[in-house]
Design a protein around this nucleic acid. Structure first.
Lengths: 228, 228
DNA sequence: TGTACATCAGTGAACGCGCGTTCACTGATGTAC
DNA sequence: TGTACATCAGTGAACGCGCGTTCACTGATGTAC
């Protein structure tokens, strides 16, 4: 608050995150701040684990800049949050792509997709909360979020399912099954995030059970005459 | 804000909910306010659909009383919210008990449980959010919430599953299966609540598919020699 | 090489808001004598 | 039946907080002449 750049950080202020010591950007390098703001939003999210902690003022504090500076790069708070979300979507998508890469068997690919999904969600619970558990009206720019959702791992999953159906490895309408599968993995992920202290069975064992049993339910009836 | 009791409600104040015209309780009838406060919290939750709208001040406004009056009956905001939650738990439990009452076949009871669960969640999305989708540290009195959870429909589900396993209608560890089943119904419910505008398949069809396929996955292997 | 000037990258102070909570109080109502 | 008094059911004003956003500004830096 004092103009003296050498003054130390005020001690109080509870939730304070290491404040940056910032030098004014040189001319033409103003865009650097934009990156720093997004990175700060990310840090706040992870370190406090609280979406409400990501306020304009807190982000500014973290970057080491005054609140009005944020408005040089984002029109308002919603836009800032949305931009921050986009970063996560890309990571989420990349993680799933990575986990399914090179798997030819579509059923195995579906399972790998599920495992990667749960893994990523539990590793980044706050991000997961924002992406999948927020209220519709807290999701900035409704349609954009939908687009992101449908563009990413969802599509990859849908393709694997369609392929598995074509090969008669599973039966049913892919348009139904994709929402079914999503429900299953989302259910486990989000319950573990919201109620971590319940007497859960071993996480690995439960995940395995969930995925295997689900695929079993989707498999063709082995006792039916046209099988085998 | 004016002391004149005949003054009309101020027009502005955006989210205002019909304010009560309250008469001071007679001596010995002070407990009535407690009920009214809980009811007001309920109304705010439902009518605004926003948990943050349930502030001490908003509740007081709705009841038609000043904020300090709340403290005559609840020690702080957390306690108020928790008490309000308890009301919902009872309803949730009653709904499930009602839906499964008189069903002898345990597998059918499990499915009925699932249907009732999804039904109740979607009919009371804000309550569902609080009960099952809040952050652990926003759940007032951690252990109490856990207790409520385990006391209610969860136990009913567990019993049905154990019974089905004993009768060889489904296979596996009931302690695993109960979390599996919960994940499945919670997944669908919470996704529909968080992302209502996605291109969802017909809700009835999807629910049916989800429940039937899940039970199918849990059923004994029909091609195995010790069956039939 | 020197200087006026435009532009860029921010700052500092303030706005009005709603929040949870505390404090000293008030006024109606029932009760003891 | 009358009156002093304790108690109950609240009120009114204030505390300090953090928030999003706006506004007029400043000072360093590059550029045109």
């Amino acid at each position: 608050m004092s103009g003296d750049p050498l003054e130390h950080q005020k001690p109080g202020s509870s939730n304070e995150i290491t404040p940056a010591r910032r030098h004014r950007a040189r001319r033409g390098e103003g865009e650097q701040l934009r990156e720093d703001i997004l990175e700060a939003a990310e840090r706040l999210l992870i370190e406090t684990g609280d979406k409400n902690a990501v306020s304009i003022r807190a982000v500014a504090r973290t970057v080491g800049v005054t609140p009005p500076s944020i408005y040089l790069h984002f029109t308002d708070k919603n836009e800032l949050l949305f931009q921050a979300c986009q970063v996560h979507w890309k990571r989420f998508d990349a993680h799933i792509r990575n986990a399914t890469k090179g798997i030819d068997d579509p059923v195995e690919r579906i399972a790998a997709c599920g495992r990667a999904y749960i893994e990523f969600g539990l590793a980044n619970p706050e991000h997961y909360r924002i992406l999948f558990m927020s209220k519709p009206d807290e999701q900035p720019s409704h349609t954009d979020v939908q687009q992101l959702l449908l563009d990413s791992g969802f599509t990859r999953l849908f393709q694997a399912i369609s392929e598995a159906v074509e090969r008669d490895q599973i039966v049913g309408d892919p348009g139904l099954i994709v929402f079914h599968c999503w429900s299953v993995v989302h259910g486990l992920t989000s319950l573990l995030i919201s109620h971590p202290d319940l007497p859960w069975p071993d996480r690995e064992v439960l995940t395995k059970h969930l995925l295997e049993t689900s695929m079993r339910g989707l498999a063709p009836d082995r006792s039916s005459p046209d099988h085998q």
